[in-house]
Design a protein around this nucleic acid. Structure first.
Length: 226
DNA sequence: ATCTGATCATAC
DNA sequence: GTATGATCAGAT
């Protein structure tokens, strides 16, 4: 029986019913279910996996700046994990604000809002796309400690952005949250803040969660090895 | 083996 | 260019 693409979930419970149906499936199976083709070269289809899962679960946000499941305020994050359950990649959160929004307090920050309620969906990494399996997804809200760590990094990093030192930021900074390039290529430019407080052209960047942080989240919620 | 900086696709 | 979805690949 073919799977019909669902309307947006009306509750977290409804969403998690769909998530449970995904557990254990391969992307070959999932793609066949909803009549899509697995791309032959994932170097040219980096976002395909996430977009397929969005369609399957009834996400509607597209490229708009709203949660994937807008009506229930849930953000979907697929996360690649190796055979031991460790994330193999960092997790993109949002673009680093460098305009008027750069100075907002943590509770009003795009990082805080994005991570307020997340559906984590681990996906097997390091195997060909058709064979990659989806694991058990779970809902997450940062606990007090996680929130404290995130806020500390936000404050530190945005302090540099606000004082015109964005070009001095490297991916080494930040305990759980880092700032790295997020652009079509290294020649891309956006407006940032200069040392004199004026506007300067600079490379667009984004906030990413370090793998060690997401690994801890997975271990809190799932039974995984090492 | 891990991490940072760079990159790919698509919609608007 | 900005937003969404991420992974690639060279450096360490």
């Amino acid at each position: 029986m073919p799977y019909t693409l669902p309307s947006p979930p009306r509750s977290e419970e409804e969403l998690m019913l769909r998530v449970r149906k995904l557990a254990g499936k391969t992307f070959a199976q999932l793609a066949a279910d909803i009549d899509k083709e697995v791309p032959s070269d994932q170097r040219n289809a980096k976002g395909w996996l996430g977009q397929l899962v969005e369609a399957y679960l009834g996400a509607t946000a597209g490229s708009r700046s709203v949660p994937d499941f807008e009506s229930i305020g849930v953000e979907l994050k697929t996360i690649p994990i190796d055979a031991t359950g460790k994330p193999t990649e960092s997790t993109f959160v949002c673009v680093t604000p460098m305009g008027e929004k750069a100075g907002v307090p943590w509770e009003d920050s795009p990082v805080y809002r994005k991570l307020k309620r997340v559906l984590w969906l681990p996906v097997q990494a390091n195997v060909p796309m058709p064979e990659r399996r989806i694991a058990t997804g779970f809902l997450w809200t940062p606990n007090d400690e996680e929130n404290r760590l995130l806020k500390a990094d936000w404050d530190d990093l945005m302090g540099m952005v606000l004082t015109g030192r964005v070009d001095e930021i490297s991916g080494h900074q930040g305990e759980v949250l880092q700032i790295r390039p997020k652009a079509a290529n290294a020649a891309a430019e956006t407006w940032g803040i200069g040392v004199d407080g004026g506007k300067v052209r600079t490379l667009p960047r984004g906030f990413y969660l370090r793998p060690a942080f997401t690994r801890a989240i997975l271990h809190e919620h799932l039974m995984v090895r090492s």
